[in-house]
Design a protein around this nucleic acid. Structure first.
Lengths: 123, 123
DNA sequence: TTTTATAGTTACTTTTTCGTCCCTACTTTA
DNA sequence: TAAAGTAGGGACGAAAAAGTAACTATAAAA
């Protein structure tokens, strides 16, 4: 992602939420409470192991989720939202509300939003 | 961006805001009022013509900005926020507030957020 | 007469992202 | 005895995203 000048703190937070799946993961954790890796993976259908791990690590670095590993023999790892993660829930809700309103207004009907629509999409 | 199931309206709105520069553009338009293309470009330093055009088109399709072209001979095009664009300002502000708080807490100190941090970043 | 400005479009190239596949080590189940 | 589940790590490669540069038209300014 190209750099909006980093002095904008909003940009950092957007790069955080922005990643693929990120909001979905936060949503599940916020809605269903702490979950183990496998459960989380099944709750976010379509995500790959690699992506889930990577997103969780990133959210962890940002202090948005915690990770707890039980050193049992098939290890059991649980993830949950930190208080800071709950801060985000507010923004997510606000955004969800607008999204809901826009949907009733039919904004997303012809949804080719965000897709770069660049002329060089190789097939 | 891989598909979170499209039934989630939030995802659409995120794909909207998420694009690079998008929030910056909305911010300028919201802060400085309607602007002509060239002015806008200079207000978002570092953005390429291609990106600016593409983002504006996308925001326009979403009904977030309007576009007004004066058919003068060097054409003069002006962009501004629609009411729907102003809806977004609220979310942006809420996010900005959290971002501000997190910044004082030093969350962004070692800012490698969002960057995939994948093992295969070729330099 | 050449340059400059406007608001882009198009082609080309590079960079980044993300999915897929294969590996771990140990235990429980079939 | 063989397979499956647990929580990933790492390599590879395809595809998408974004930067760069060159092009459009016309009129005014130098």
């Amino acid at each position: 992602m190209p750099r909006t000048p980093p002095q904008c703190p909003m940009d950092s937070i957007l790069r955080l939420l922005m990643g693929p799946w990120t909001t979905h993961i936060i949503w599940v954790l916020s809605d269903q409470g702490p979950q183990r890796f496998g459960v989380l993976k099944r709750a976010v259908p379509g995500i790959s192991t690699r992506m889930l791990t990577e997103r969780l690590r990133m959210l962890q670095r940002a202090g948005v989720v915690w990770r707890e590993q039980a050193e049992t023999i098939p290890p059991a790892v649980t993830y949950g939202l930190t208080p800071r993660g709950n801060d985000l829930r507010g923004v997510l809700d606000a955004m969800g509300e607008i999204a809901e309103r826009w949907k009733t207004e039919g904004v997303f009907e012809d949804d080719d939003l965000g897709g770069a629509a660049s002329p060089n999409s190789r097939v």
